[in-house]
C-alpha cells in the first residue's frame, strides 16, 4: 500500500501533526491511523519530534474560572451535588451535566433493558454487533489485541464515523476504544487499564468524523455483550 511506504508515510504523518493536512485527506489519514499501527507510531514520532516547539511558547495562566468550567463540563459539580444528596443509587449517568446527560440517559436506558449477566473482562472474548439478525461488526479480543472486522452490511458514510465503547460494569462512564472501520479490519492494542476491567456491555455510537470530542458517546446505535471464548 502506497501510504505505508516509508517516505510517503513520513510526509503524511508530519503533515498531520503540523496541522497542514485538512478535509478529506485528513479524514482518510485518521482512518489509516486507526487501521495501521505503523501509521499511528509515525504520528507519535512526529508529535514527540515537534513537541519542543510548544515548550518555546510563553506560559500563560488560564483565567481563574477555567478549572470550574472544566469541572462543570465533566460533571464534577453535578457529582458533588449528587454525593451531597447521598443518593443511594449514586449513578454517574445521572451526574453528567449539560448536553452530555442526553447521551448518558439514552445509553442507560438501553442497558437497563438488557438482562443482567455475568460481568466479563477483556481477556479473550468475542462479540458481534447486529442490526436485527444482520451481523455488522465481528469483534475479538485476544492477548490484549482488539480486532474488529466490518461486514458488508455496515452503512458507509462520509458524514459520520462509528466509535466503539466499553460500558463498565461499575456504572462508570463509557470508555472509548476508538473508531471502528466501515469496511475491512482494524487491529489495535488495548490500553492496559482496560484489559482487566469488569464490562457490562460493548456499544457502537455514531459520531462526527474523527470521533467523539467530548469523550462520551453521541448517538448509541448498537449494543452487545461479550462472549468468553
Amino acid at each position: 500500500m502506497n501510504y505505508l511506504k516509508d517516505e510517503r508515510l513520513d510526509a503524511l504523518a508530519s503533515d498531520y501533526v503540523m496541522g497542514t493536512m485538512q478535509g478529506l485527506a485528513r479524514e482518510r489519514f485518521i482512518r489509516l491511523m486507526q487501521t495501521y499501527p505503523a501509521v499511528r507510531e509515525r504520528v507519535w514520532f512526529w508529535e514527540q519530534m515537534l513537541a519542543p516547539l510548544n515548550e518555546r511558547l510563553p506560559l500563560q495562566s488560564p483565567p481563574p474560572h477555567m478549572w470550574d468550567d472544566i469541572s462543570h463540563r465533566i460533571g464534577f459539580t453535578a457529582m458533588d451535588k449528587q454525593d451531597a444528596a447521598n443518593d443511594e443509587t449514586k449513578s454517574p449517568w445521572l451526574a453528567w451535566g449539560g448536553g452530555l446527560a442526553t447521551a448518558a440517559v439514552l445509553i442507560m436506558g438501553i442497558f437497563f433493558l438488557m438482562p443482567v449477566t455475568e460481568q466479563t473482562t477483556l481477556t479473550e472474548q468475542v462479540a458481534v454487533f447486529k442490526d436485527g439478525n444482520q451481523p455488522l461488526w465481528l469483534m475479538e479480543v485476544s492477548d490484549g489485541e482488539l480486532t474488529v472486522q466490518a461486514t458488508s452490511a455496515v452503512a458507509m458514510s462520509d458524514e459520520y464515523d462509528y466509535e466503539l465503547w466499553i460500558v463498565p460494569a461499575d456504572g462508570g462512564s463509557p470508555i472509548s476504544l476508538g473508531l471502528v472501520p466501515e469496511s475491512g479490519m482494524l487491529s489495535r492494542t488495548l490500553a492496559v487499564n482496560t484489559r482487566d476491567m469488569a464490562i457490562k456491555a460493548m456499544a457502537v455510537s455514531r459520531e462526527l468524523p474523527g470521533g467523539s470530542v467530548t469523550g462520551l458517546p453521541g448517538e448509541v446505535l448498537y449494543v452487545t455483550e461479550l462472549t468468553i471464548l
Partner: peptide, 11 residues
C-alpha cells in the same frame, strides 16, 4: 482548552 481537558479526563 476546556474541550481538550475533558478529552484528557475521559481518555
Amino acid at each position: 482548552l476546556q474541550e481538550a481537558y475533558v478529552k484528557i479526563w475521559h481518555n
